[in-house]
Design a protein around this nucleic acid. Structure first.
Lengths: 159, 159
DNA sequence: CGGCTAAATGTTATATAATAACAGTCGGCG
DNA sequence: CGCCGACTGTTATTATATAACATTTAGCCG
């Protein structure tokens, strides 16, 4: 992925996108000795089905319908596992979650969030101005949240 | 404020900072015909007391103690008024609120959030890389959320 | 294999954050 | 004064997230 180019909003072969996302995560888990259990895998698959940010309770409904646990902690554990290991991201501005488009790679993600269709594009960008602000006040950054909310190209064309 | 230089984390005359914040907002409300009612003014004052991001319910407790309404809608209305008019900001990563350090001026704020002391520095920065990503996919940005969580200089010196 | 241990899951309950809906009140203006 | 729109009061509910503890499972080691 070229730096700065967002993935997820543009037309693409989504079946391949999903399959690829899953197999990458499987490989990484194998590598690192992480256990991609049934609930975790299924949660990831649900997120991979679209680039729309899903709320934890939306995911939970899906899991519950399949008999994979009906209580909030089930889905929050799975989501936290995915987020902690870089397989998914939390969209703070929406209290939602999306699968990562380049799982495993350390990156500071930035998101383009369409308020019309809910889809989220993910880009890996440098945050030079933010880094500079942090340097200026001797602040040690551990995590960044960079999100832009607006309207995607498709929704502007077909309102 | 020089662009990119964060305000709020560095030592400063906070009494002046508070007074200034309040009088600027008063002036802007006068200008624009906005009503800075008792609950709104008091909410702003509470936020101005520190650069710590406060939860809505923390503000509510303070308001309730002073007899200014004990129910959530009271504080959410006041906070929404302040945020909508650029007098305060929501810190998405914390579900908290801070007073704006340059109220009234249109700006894309960026925040440095100390996870140790909770204080929040605010800077006005350009988001060139993010803008470029948006341009690349013909995405119309309406609002940006830029936050960095970490540890401020003071907390790193005095752990 | 058998049993120990750590990790993961199941479950109940509760904390925290935010809004819907509607009735009542206040303030400016004709 | 009396109307109207903005603001406030209040009840109830929805949405998001976690605490705490019991139980089960998977992997390891003897």
């Amino acid at each position: 992925m070229a730096e700065g180019v967002p993935t997820g909003l543009s037309p693409h072969d989504h079946a391949a996108c999903r399959a690829d996302g899953l197999s990458r995560v499987e490989a990484i888990c194998e590598d690192r000795g992480l256990r991609l259990t049934k609930a975790r895998r299924r949660t990831l698959e649900i997120l991979l089905e679209s680039h729309v940010a899903l709320g934890a309770y939306e995911v939970l409904e899906r899991l519950a319908a399949e008999g994979l646990g009906a209580q909030p902690p089930v889905v929050y554990r799975a989501l936290n596992f995915l987020v902690d290991n870089g397989f998914a991201h939390k969209i703070e501005g929406r209290n939602g979650f999306v699968a990562c488009v380049s799982p495993g790679a350390e990156h500071d993600p930035a998101f383009l969030i369409c308020r019309a269709c809910g889809r989220v594009g993910e880009a890996t960008i440098a945050t030079r101005e933010l880094d500079r602000s942090a340097d200026l006040s001797d602040f040690a950054v551990e995590r960044t949240v960079v999100e832009a909310e607006g309207v995607c190209a498709r929704c502007r064309k077909e309102p």
